[in-house]
Simulated scan of single mutants.
Amino acid sequence: MANRREVLIAGFGGQGIVLAGYVLGKAAAVYEGKEASLVQSYGPESRGGACKAEVVISDEQIDYPRASDPEVMVVMSQEAYHTYAAKRSPHCLLIIDEDLVDPSEEREGMKLLKIPATRLAEQLGRKIVANMVMLGFLTGVTGIVSPEAMRESIRTSVPRGTEELNLRAFETGYEYAQKLVGAEVSPS
Rank of each mutant, 00 (worst) to 15 (best):
V129D: 10
A50P: 10
S77A: 04
M134F: 05
Y176I: 02
L100M: 14
T118A: 03
S68N: 12
Q178V: 11
E60W: 02
V185T: 15
R168M: 06
T172F: 01
V74G: 02
M1N: 14
A29R: 05
Q15E: 01
E171D: 13
A130N: 13
R168T: 01
G11F: 04
Q78H: 05
I62S: 01
I95W: 06
G136W: 02
V7G: 09
E32V: 02
E54W: 04
A27L: 06
R151Q: 15
S146V: 10
A177D: 05
P70I: 03
E35Q: 12
R126A: 15
T142Q: 01
M110S: 15
E108A: 13
V181L: 13
L8T: 14
A80N: 00
V133P: 09
Y64C: 09
L135K: 01
A36H: 03
V158S: 08
M110D: 14
G11D: 11
G136S: 08
K179T: 12
M150N: 10
D99R: 14
M76A: 01
M1H: 14
S58K: 04
T139C: 10
Y42M: 07
G161A: 10
G48D: 04
S146Q: 09
I62C: 05
R155M: 12
H82E: 14
S186E: 15
E71Q: 14
R151G: 08
E6F: 04
A29C: 12
E45M: 07
M134I: 10
G143F: 05
H82I: 01
G161M: 07
G173K: 09
G125Y: 03
M132D: 10
A80I: 01
G13H: 10
F12M: 12
L93C: 12
Q78N: 02
G125R: 06
E164V: 12
S41A: 14
T142G: 11
A169D: 02
G25S: 04
P44I: 04
Y31W: 11
M150G: 13
M132Y: 07
V23I: 14
G136H: 01
G16Y: 03
G11R: 11
V39P: 00
V133T: 10
Y176M: 12
R4A: 07
A29T: 05
